[in-house]
Design a protein around this nucleic acid. Sequence first.
DNA 1: GTAAAATGAAAAATCGTTTTACCGTGTCCT
DNA 2: AGGACACGGTAAAACGATTTTTCATTTTAC
Lengths: 346, 346
Amino acid sequence: MAQRVGIKDVALAAGVSVSTVSHALSGKGHMRAETRDRVRAVAVELGYTPNRLASSLRQRRTRVIGLVSDSISTTPFATRVVVGVHEAASAAGLQVMMTSTHGDPSVELASLELLASYRVDGVVYAKMFHQTADVPAALLAMPSVFVDALPREPIVPATVPDERQIGRVGTEFLLGQGHRNIAHLSIVHGGPGRDGRVAGFMDAMHAASIENAEGFVAYSDDTSEAYARRARDVLTASPRPTAVFCFNDRAAIGVYHAAASLRLRIPEDVSVVGVDNLELVAETLNPGLTTVSLPHFEMGVWAVRTLVKMIAGEPFAGDTPSVVFQPGVLIERASVAPPGPRVTKT
Amino acid sequence: MAQRVGIKDVALAAGVSVSTVSHALSGKGHMRAETRDRVRAVAVELGYTPNRLASSLRQRRTRVIGLVSDSISTTPFATRVVVGVHEAASAAGLQVMMTSTHGDPSVELASLELLASYRVDGVVYAKMFHQTADVPAALLAMPSVFVDALPREPIVPATVPDERQIGRVGTEFLLGQGHRNIAHLSIVHGGPGRDGRVAGFMDAMHAASIENAEGFVAYSDDTSEAYARRARDVLTASPRPTAVFCFNDRAAIGVYHAAASLRLRIPEDVSVVGVDNLELVAETLNPGLTTVSLPHFEMGVWAVRTLVKMIAGEPFAGDTPSVVFQPGVLIERASVAPPGPRVTKT
DNA sequence: GTAAAATGAAAAATCGTTTTACCGTGTCCT
DNA sequence: AGGACACGGTAAAACGATTTTTCATTTTAC
């Protein structure tokens, strides 16, 4: 009882050699089915628990992947990536070792070295918002994938949200409901997310032959209060927009507050669409917020799937595209109605 | 370049034996400082990365702990536990391997066996809401701690929220603001969380010499809509309560909706206090929700700290209390004001 | 009937560390 | 003088598996 039972004990009890036990359990070498079954029976009877340390040491693979993220939960997005990674890893028979770096490069380096010392089979390198990032040298020593970040040099596969499509989808939904005078409430300090969504907004507006769409874009700081102030400007413009497409759900909160203070009803007087699909927010708002969900879960899944391929086969070769853009999908709730004086709430 | 550099290569390059390298790097055996430094220098020069698999195999400890949870993110609480566990683990020089069981006992068993095969030094067993749970047999083989769950038999240390204190704190805050007619909106199907908070509510009311506090408790299903309906009943009672203490933030949302539909202002006409401190919700609501935060982060931290002690010393002995109750803390926002006709908004 | 090939299982090497035992040499103590 | 002990270091034995090699039997082929 003192020691755990090992392959050696099983061998002894079954009256065979340790190599035979190893083969029997892994089903590798050829052997009589009778022997195999007997060995396996003895193993479960003895309560044998394999030692993955020994196994990994010998096989030079651990079936563990690393996940280094600059945050595991300061935003719900990070959490979704984490969940996606875990689910896909679990499906592939992999465990994950997660480290959080708080965006500190020295912590990040330490994390990567730590993961290397555990000999993880690969690492998912995730950022918590869409950006361009350098590839840490330590990453090149092992299979790795970027998530929500574009490597400055295309030496590592990456996946990011298709911001332009996201901007288009949100806008097109409003256009489809008959809106023509649509404002876009965006942010002043922005990266690929901001630019892509603005571009997508323009795409959709132009495709609907609406001129001068640039004029409908307003820029704000990224806090609810700033959004609320800026939204007030937008909603007091003349002619007043019948719908607002927001950079994110926080901006949408700002619009709700501004609308409340202006005694405008949502969606009767103004429709609003967000981006993020923060469930807690979208469902807390009254009425529920229609919003475009960001593909963080999907990015996490994609990341470990391509990591698995890289681990198995050629390291980041041929058919693996360098970067894949994941689409967002529109989640309909109750914050959008056709424009016009008629109230269309069911 | 083909192979990673190991302790052997360092030994060769430094002209010493592998045992000497091992001692030099770990600082264990006695040796001339000069030798030690030279070996270390060679190690960094060669870019030596220790192999924790080999080290763990030999030392019979991995510096990895397992975290098995029935969910990693279906609620923000689970996420907070995860963060607490990671932070405390990182501070103690431990890595964590997390598995999600979706509450399925067979998955749970598989998870525990998997973690055992990786020879984790211990495991944190977390549930996503306060409950009493059986101790899986597989857990007994290694140091382990329960989080947000009381083991049916006291053979494993555990930590849970101090529900009674939480109920008391929320209620006392309202009493302190001068409220006397306080309703408690609770849930019909409940476990320790429900009972504890109701008891805490009673405690506070009785301590304020308010009779018949039971009469102020209303029970609802745990959905926003049900809460809203029940809250309507509560807010149309006569005399109308001047404040509502809610079982959780979702119930508070229901109160907000009911208040809106009854044209009651918060906090001027009715004050509300929640429990959970779901930041996204509390800050989205208008006005911001005053609520009692649940100690999930702290429970995660406590769990790995006591796990560390168990791993180091005597397995769950003497001074370790069997279960510790973590207090909640009141987070003040804008949903509470003194009662009475006067508007006291600053 | 014998050589060659296939089979089933055991023995030995290996993965990269840590740890124990040990070996000289020199110092200190009694 | 002689034992104990510190020092600085090395060799070798673990740790618990997998994989390669070896070896003794059968089977198959001619």
